[in-house]
Amino acid sequence: MRPFGFERPETLERAAGIVAAREDRAAPPPLSSAQFIAGGTNMADYMKLGVMRPNLLVDIGRLADPGLRRIAASPDGIRLGALVRMSEAEENADIRIGYPVIAESLQQAASQQIRNMASLGGNILQRTRCEYFRDISWACNKRDPGSGCAAMDGFNRQHAVLGVSDRCIATYHGDFAQALIALDASVETQSPRGGRTMAFSELHRLPGETPHVETQLMADELITLIDIPAKPWARRSHYLKIRDRQSYAFAVASVAVVLDLEDGAVRDVRIALGGLATVPWRAQEAEDELKGGPLDERTAGRAAEAAFAGAMPREHNAFKISLGRQALVRALLETRDMRV
């Protein structure tokens, strides 16, 4: 690991200001020489591996702003501070009752120890777990732009089938993000240029030609809040995660569903897929297929077909298309059958 300087500012403004003062402030955040660190579960791991090589760490774990650590439920929805720990959010009664998909996605995301450390803001921004990205001896466009992609023709069982480009097929491995997509959440950010709000579904960028540019954020921009609008029907929401083992593993496929049922018919539905795509993935085609009709195994199957119409498999991950479809069917049926 490279040597690094360490700053622990007390205010958000100061934290962002430190990074803004750097010469490379315009670099895409993952390549910036200054990095924010909160829980550290992703950053420390990637620094040890040499994937992240900042020479300055800005520890935001103790920023004084209480809003960053608050979970605020109101009739308008629920607002989660970016420094709320994953385990705190999943145990919150408002979330468990009103937004089960959040609690379920967080609970299955990692071990309790990691969930006790990791912040929600950091969790959203976690970088891929692609084996070829994690080991710096392989070529990787996401880690080292222009170096190539060893995964493309390598062992790519865990790689994405949706949202891929010819530069990158790395999967987005988070879980919480799918819940946020399905709930139509937005995020608020802060930088020296002020605050802004964006739809969560706009936050992540497809790899395209620049897989190292992962989000819309700037290097000196911090997520401060996650805003989830009120949706009474979010009580009927569910996160299904299919893994190679029962726990403490990344999704081979996962599905977040928020379902509005009326007399057995789908009034509205939002679906997001994980473990299958390069970014948190909204399955809008599947939603459209279901809206207005009954929800049964047959209609769910049609929606699942639609969701994967554009899937692009590689040598070892073609099964993810059929698994993804089946997972979507299962998640829809399980959500339908929830007692709310």
Partner: peptide, 14 residues
């Protein structure tokens, strides 16, 4: 390729 305990899976308690 899968040279760690993240990707070389062994059974966990669950």
């Amino acid at each position: 390729v899968n040279t760690d305990l993240q990707d070389y899976l062994v059974p966990v308690n669950a």
